[in-house]
Design a protein around this nucleic acid. Structure first.
Lengths: 226, 226
DNA sequence: CAGGATCGTCACAGGCTCCTCACGCTACGT
DNA sequence: ACGTAGCGTGAGGAGCCTGTGACGATCCTG
């Protein structure tokens, strides 16, 4: 079952274009041509996300955003034509998750939609993990060892989070570098090593011995033992 | 024990549908088919919340809302058919927490119900916190140090509240800026720093030392030590 | 066994974030 | 008009985070 995306726009060609784009990206577009029918559709069978044009025949996109936000936390993207950028702040205040100016690339739109969905799914509830005497609360960004809070630097925590989110699975150097530093740092393996070392020094139970949590996979990457 | 929700409606099919939906969402539905029996049921064993149809055999939903409000602060959702939107204001004035127009999606209804319960749980009792010699009463918007009231400016108090509501957890610069200043100020970290400094000056026990309450997480944000 | 590749560790220097403080602006009440 | 409260801004300095490069250890391979 592909995720449903409510598309609210009164220009048929835009709706048609979005339908195609979304289908290719694995979404099902649910079209609505004005605010009232959008609210009805969303009420009867709430979609996973919504793309809303700023200008609609009845109420404007911002008002529609506000109405949906009254009861739903679904990701909402607002579309606008050029020259309407001034509305951006108001749209975000009303609860929109992102604001896209026409003309937009279809790939950009899909990317933004997926990013919003990822954020929504993630904020739900990050897992809190306890093993041995190590305690990791990703949401609170807190790590404890033997009950005592351990201070981690930003990179150290992001690294640990990337590993823990995929615990049991192998994380290649490449994946870790992209996730923590960004795509342009794919080559810089040495800093990664250094930070892994520092992280181990803070969370591994005993010095001078085989790591319990962060295991090295020589030539490939690291994995968090879950 | 799942929370009990009073469902007042004289149409058996609606009641049956709501029963199923609520059970799936972790609630127990307590059905009543008219206002009189609803009042009886609520009096005998008060539910956590109520969903009331606008049209009932004896008294109307608004009157029932008013009667319940005389002694209860439970969240109340009023249902109405299309064309009855004019009643919305009256329902809210009578003390309803939300107003849902049929046809409604089951997930929307549940979302609104949960939102209302969240609001109720929050306003009911904003945590009043005492640690060391600091006392914070969020509901009363009062802060004391050693029993003496401390004056906080609006921004300072909102900042403290955002931190205290999430105490123990890290609040990123971004989150604090959105919560206190609004989404359009996401970038303005320096003012945040300044106000944190002023706030610390007013509530931290000793000058010239490591903060006891508002702890800095370098590169990420702040957290309130709870 | 020899060579090479990968990895862990360490000290260090640069840079960035943060705190503090003084100042100017605005809104508001006297 | 004047004073005050609340707020944002910028400079300056301290402290911490981070990347770097070198070195030794380990493992694999030929």
């Amino acid at each position: 079952m592909s995720p449903r995306v409510l598309v609210v726009d009164d220009e048929p060609q835009i709706v048609r274009a979005l339908k195609v784009v979304l289908r290719e990206a694995g979404f099902e577009a649910v079209p609505a041509e004005d605010g009232a029918s959008a609210l009805d559709l969303a009420a009867v069978r709430p979609p996973e996300a919504a793309i809303i044009d700023l200008v609609l025949p009845d109420i404007d996109g911002i008002e529609l955003t506000r109405r949906l936000r009254e009861w739903s936390e679904m990701p909402i993207l607002v579309l606008s034509a050029v020259g309407e950028e001034g509305q951006k702040v108001r749209a975000l205040e009303a609860g929109a998750d992102d604001y896209v100016t026409k003309p937009f690339g279809t790939r950009e739109l899909v990317a933004r939609l997926q990013a919003a969905l990822r954020r929504a799914g993630r904020s739900e509830q990050e897992p809190s993990i306890v093993l041995d005497r190590l305690e990791i609360d990703l949401a609170a960004r807190v790590v404890r060892r033997d009950g005592e809070p351990v201070h981690l630097t930003p990179i150290e925590f992001d690294l640990l989070r990337a590993l823990v989110r995929n615990r049991g699975r192998l994380m290649t150097h490449r994946k870790l570098l992209v996730e923590v530093w960004g795509p342009e740092y794919v080559e810089d393996v040495q800093p990664l090593r250094t930070h892994i070392a520092r992280l181990r020094g803070k969370i591994e139970p005993q010095e001078q011995s085989a790591p319990r949590f962060i295991v090295t996979d020589p030539g490939v990457g690291y994995r968090f033992a879950g």
